[in-house]
Amino acid sequence: MLTVSHLKRPGLVDASFSLSLGECVAVRGPSGAGKSLLLRAIADLDPSDGEVSLEGCPRNSMSGPQWRQLVGYLPAEPGWWADRVGQHFRDWAAAKPLLDRLGLPDEARDWPLTRPSTGERIRLALIRALANDPKVLLLDEPTAALDAVAVAAVEALMAERVAAGLAVLWVTHDAAQGERVARRFLRIEAGQVVNEECRA
């Protein structure tokens, strides 16, 4: 279980909630309400106050890199550090099944970074994040730039991973998507987690 208690940072008033392993919670709220700031704070990419722990282990008991291997984060615009797509993967062959599943060709390995579209980049970054085998995955509008087929593929893949025990915090603007992927919702307004509603 991921437990967040009294998490604060500039732009985020006070967030407390928990997320079980094998659960997907959708995060909703207007633009600029602090959804991305919340995800960055949980991933420990920016300084923040409050307690965050995973299965009883406070994040300060491990190093930043160890924490981020357990708690993966897929930002809305993922970054790339090398010239070719394949250089961003430790083991391209191991990623192959997921590439197939999300409609990406094997040749993508040699693509220069100028080649993939926004939607392809998101899918590549999702596969890259899953390759670390995280316990928790923080998704920031992962399907905003995808077509209907790709959205369905990503949702199906995530549902499978959640069933296998992955915890997912899924930021989405699409109400229908929220209903599809999650049973529980967090609503963020003006930097505050204002309510949690459960669906039967």
Binding site: A43, L45, G64, P65, Q66, R68, Q69, G72, Y73, P75, E77, P78, G79, W80, W81, A125, R128, A129, N132
Partner: peptide, 15 residues
Amino acid sequence: LRRSAVEARLMLGAS
């Protein structure tokens, strides 16, 4: 200028 590239590696658990 290369903030997102640097942070992308940090996100994946790089030192």
